[in-house]
Design a protein around this nucleic acid. Structure first.
Length: 637
DNA sequence: ATAGGGTTAG
């Protein structure tokens, strides 16, 4: 690089200006250090303006080196407020340094040479937020008042965010009311655009706070009351819905946003995609992808991961791989998204290949990566491979979490090693939870093991007394072994404890509209047509020699009644609706909230043959691609 | 020089 060759004695303010430009155009730490070295050599490193600029760049540029910045700071004889602020901000924003930022702020205050200003507090409060240090936050709040910055909107929004992030919604609300009233009044008097913007930010912080504590109702109420909303307001609400399982609401809001002429940005798309994925709404997902491309929204790793996940969860694993290949892939989440997608589709070999590629590319796997790999082994029945990946994971230093043990229980149990799966739960060094016992119970159901199944159900009923899962599963196990007395007993217990079966629910997207069906649902506008289609299907199935498998129904009832209940499982209703709403040969895609039952699985195989349709059903855990009378899972699921 | 929203998971 070109360093101006100046003799120290000739250095003037004009030359300082030259150095500032030099510093600002540096592209790496190395270049910055060269300038620094030259400044030392020519005894200009204590020139205040230049020294501060050097500090700012080493602390805040993309190639920042905080420790180097700290050493520069130590060389300053009299650091000014700007220098303190720069370092506090840099420390607060560095992943493992926010505590350091707080200590630095304490030094600043006790040093007493300079007073904190309105730029100091936002960073300090940000540090308290990420550390969720309410006590320290309150002390800083005291200093905010003492130094007279409680009217500064940047300080206030950070103060509010500190209370929100510490989960203290009561104090948040008090502060919010007070500053809102104050700012609102000022707004009326001054008609100041920037004030208005400040109010929006305060509201956004509050909406986000309510979302964080899971109070979606309060979040939505505030959102609706806002006189003005920014794209961030919409994003906060949409992601809030999506993250809390209100997928239809998230999508509905996304639509409404466009009707109100607000342009979605990259974060909006990233926020709404998980909801689209969960509902399997491929048409909407494609639309989002196209929207990003048309509007020059950069498909970075975050948006890309969400798209990969969407295509995988919507059944288009090929498209998911295609999008994946076009991404920078610098992020472990991106790799996890494709690995999880491949696993879900039962493509175990691809999972291993992609995993090897990932390691070659220098991205370190995370614990989530191993969840994807283990679940791939589980779906493909690769017990030994799963065991060896589990050991590998431990050898490279991961402490297995309950999710990993869950995968192993699933893997062993599904493959028939029920005793070993049970022993694993009993001997693992961490506390078991309801999910892991459910995995074992599910395996007992597949292998019709009454003994271990009963044991698992008993534990489960204690761990999650109001969850219908254990009752439904054990009664199905009894039913498949023909023990109707035991079934009736479970049934009675459920009645006593007022436990109801989780309603099965399926979604199918036709022409971009999502239709939702519950068990025995007749609320759809086309209910009549659907019903006759169901009858037709049933007749054709019978004609093909199909006899329903009625053992998986909770109640013992007379055979005809049982059959009619089976016909009304939500995925069958969705298929019937799909068949009458689309042209011949159109593939059908259905998403179900529970796992598919044996009867539906075998009738879907036949339906795909009789009607010559590809039918894809995504159940709670994986994909089933039905075609020409068979399923991609090879009946192992 | 300072504020608010995001992706993967048994």
């Amino acid at each position: 690089m070109n360093i101006p060759l100046l003799h120290p004695k000739t250095s003037t303010p004009h030359h300082s200006q030259l150095f500032l430009t030099q510093i600002r155009t540096c592209q790496s730490m190395q270049e910055l250090k060269q300038v620094h070295a030259f400044l030392i050599k020519t005894a200009q490193n204590h020139e205040p303006v230049v020294a501060t600029e050097l500090l700012r760049h080493s602390a805040t540029s993309d190639f920042r080196d905080i420790d180097y910045a700290l050493s520069l700071f130590d060389e300053m004889p009299e650091p000014d407020c700007f220098a303190w602020n720069t370092l506090i901000r840099a420390l607060a924003e560095t992943h493992d340094r926010p505590l350091h930022a707080l200590l630095f702020f304490c030094n600043m205050v006790s040093d007493g040479m300079v007073e904190p200003n309105r730029f100091t507090f936002p960073s300090v409060l940000k540090a308290c937020s990420v550390l969720t240090r309410l006590e320290e936050g309150k002390q800083v709040h005291g200093l905010v008042v003492k130094f007279g910055f409680s009217g500064d909107e940047f300080v206030v929004s950070n103060l509010l965010r500190m209370y929100v992030m510490c989960g203290n919604m009561e104090d948040s609300h008090v502060l919010f009311r007070r500053s809102f009233d104050g700012v609102d009044y000022m707004n009326k008097v001054m008609r100041d655009k920037r004030r208005e913007e400040g109010i929006v930010v305060l509201c956004n912080v509050m909406v986000d706070g309510y979302v964080r504590v899971g109070n979606l109702t309060a979040a939505r109420e505030l959102f609706d009351r806002m006189h003005k909303r920014s794209v961030v307001s919409w994003n906060a609400m949409i992601s809030g819905y999506a993250q809390n399982g209100y997928f239809l609401e998230a999508i509905e809001l996304f639509h409404r946003m466009q009707m109100e002429d607000l342009l979605p940005n990259r974060v909006t798309l990233v926020s709404v995609l998980p909801a689209i994925s969960r509902l399997g709404a491929i048409e909407m997902g494609k639309w989002v992808h196209l929207y990003a491309e048309r509007n020059k929204i950069k498909i970075d790793d975050a948006l890309g991961s969400a798209l990969v996940d969407m295509y995988a969860k919507c059944g288009s694993i090929g498209k998911a791989v295609q999008v994946f290949e076009s991404l920078p892939k610098s992020n472990v989440i991106t790799w996890n998204a494709i690995l999880g997608g491949l696993a879900m589709h039962g493509k175990a070999k691809d999972v291993f290949d992609f995993f090897a590629r990932m390691e070659r590319s220098g991205i370190s796997p995370s614990d989530v990566t191993y969840i994807a790999i283990l679940s791939a082994c589980s779906h493909a029945g690769l017990v030994d491979k799963g065991r060896s990946y589990f050991n590998h994971m431990v050898n490279v230093g991961f402490v297995p979490r309950i999710e990993h043990y869950g995968c192993m229980v699933d893997l062993l149990g599904r493959a028939g090693y029920l005793e070993e799966a049970k022993e694993l739960i009993l001997n693992m060094p961490i506390k078991s939870d309801d999910v892991i016992w459910k995995a074992l119970l599910g395996a007992c159901k597949v292998h019709k093991n009454v003994e271990i199944g009963r044991r698992a159900a008993e534990v489960l009923m204690q761990l999650a007394p109001h969850d219908s899962g254990a009752y439904v599963a054990i009664s199905n196990i009894y039913a498949s072994s023909g023990d109707w007395d035991a079934v009736a007993e479970v049934r009675l217990m459920m009645k006593d404890l007022d436990i109801r079966k989780d309603p099965g629910c399926s979604w199918i997207e036709i022409d971009g509209v999502i239709h939702e069906f519950l068990v025995e649902d007749d609320s759809h506008p086309s209910a009549k047509e659907i019903h006759s289609m169901l009858e037709e299907i049933s007749n054709k199935l019978n004609f093909e020699g199909y006899r329903p498998n009625t053992t998986q129904v909770l109640l013992k009832m007379d055979e005809t009644h049982k059959e009619s209940v089976l016909h009304y499982h939500s995925e069958k209703i969705a298929v019937a609706f799909g068949l009458i709403s689309t042209t011949p040969k159109t593939p059908l895609q259905i998403v179900k909230n529970l796992r598919i039952c044996e009867d539906c699985h075998s009738s879907m195989k036949l339906i795909s043959k009789i009607y010559n349709r590809k039918i894809t059903i995504r159940d709670r855990k994986r994909f089933h691609h039905f075609e020409h009378g068979s399923c991609s899972c090879m009946d192992y699921w």
